[in-house]
């Protein structure tokens, strides 16, 4: 009995947590459960969620990507540079995403072919990407971007009454959910994380799978970066600092094991929501952002301890 029960708690535990926090905040603050606030909240989490979706794939392969925040900054700065030089916005965004893909693939290559542990490899590229951003921008924000509707819509627009970033997030979520659970690639991601040796001996090109997940994460980080750039109408060289931690937190709160092979992307979405709801709610309750960090940390610890108690 114990096994099945704990297995089920692991599946719906984060959701129960989310519902609990939402109900609590609805009682504590009148302005929390309003359509405006919920849409605002969803927009706030969309950037973290996009990064965390990629991070889910990486962590499922028993890896980690610390470079996503810096990669976001570098990708955004380069995209903004292309936009301000007058390049066609569609082309610039497309090239920006490709840059994210290539930088992510670089992480993957260092980890697989260079045989460097993911933590160290991405710690190094985190610094390198940040440095490259500062070099490219000379430490100053990139401004004077395109006023194309498409680009402006990405961060600021609404589709009917729903913010465009939320729509992007949901579409990406559905696509990734399908990939993870219904494709050969998705199965192999789980296999590589579950037991790389056994996966390789079963005819899985484990290195290729890993390179692909880091590429995916790089691309999603730049997508998040472009949304952020559009929203701020400028690319900041310090953008995305510490974003990797929020993304990892969302994945972990969502019940994905850092040991790899076990977890769900739905959990990550809920994890991102929990983080977003907590900061949103605490803001509404006028709790100082200093205290907010303590609460966020405590939630992460609680979630991880719940995960450990399963084994």
């Amino acid at each position: 009995m114990r096994n099945k029960l704990s297995e089920n708690i692991a599946k719906i535990g984060p959701l129960i947590g989310l519902v609990f926090i939402v109900i609590l905040l609805a009682f504590l603050s009148d302005s929390f459960l309003t359509v405006d606030n919920i849409l605002n909240l969803l927009r706030q989490i969309s950037i973290n969620a996009l990064i965390a979706f990629g991070m889910t794939f990486v962590i499922l392969t028993a890896g980690i990507d610390l470079s996503v925040g810096s990669l976001l900054a570098l990708g955004s700065a380069l995209t903004a540079g292309m936009l301000s030089s007058g390049m066609d916005p569609i082309l610039a965004i497309f090239l920006g995403l490709i840059i994210g893909l290539v930088l992510g693939a670089l992480n993957g290559l260092i980890i697989t072919k260079g045989k460097v542990a993911p933590f160290i490899a991405t710690l190094a590229t985190m610094t390198i990407f940040r440095g490259a951003t500062l070099v490219y921008t000379d430490g100053k924000p990139v401004t004077g971007l395109s006023d194309s509707v498409l680009f402006q819509m990405m961060g600021k627009g609404y589709f009917f009454f729903i913010p465009v970033p939320v729509i992007i997030m949901l579409v990406v979520f559905l696509v990734l959910y399908f990939i993870l659970h219904n494709t050969v690639f998705g199965r192999r991601v789980y296999a590589v994380g579950g037991n790389e040796e056994a996966a390789t001996l079963s005819g899985v090109k484990s290195d290729r799978i890993k390179i692909l997940v880091y590429s995916l994460t790089g691309m999603l980080a730049v997508l998040a970066g472009i949304i952020l750039t559009s929203r701020l109408n400028s690319a900041q060289p310090t953008a995305g600092t510490m974003y990797e931690l929020d993304a990892i937190a969302a994945v972990v709160i969502g019940g994905t094991s850092l040991m790899g092979g076990r977890g769900r992307i739905t959990g990550t979405l809920i994890g991102a929501l929990i983080i977003g709801v907590i900061s949103n709610g605490l803001n509404l309750l006028n709790v100082s952002s200093f205290y907010q960090q303590i609460v966020k940390g405590a939630v992460i610890l609680f979630a991880v301890m719940l995960d450990r108690s399963r084994d």
Binding site: V184, R188, Y190, A199, G261, R262
Partner: peptide, 29 residues
Amino acid sequence: KDKGLLIDASIRDNVALTNLSTISKSGVV
């Protein structure tokens, strides 16, 4: 345990792993 199985994964996932190409079409299982 070390080389043959994804020990935490299900029987289905283990058996399917070597056969993904035959049970999928254009990469979709």
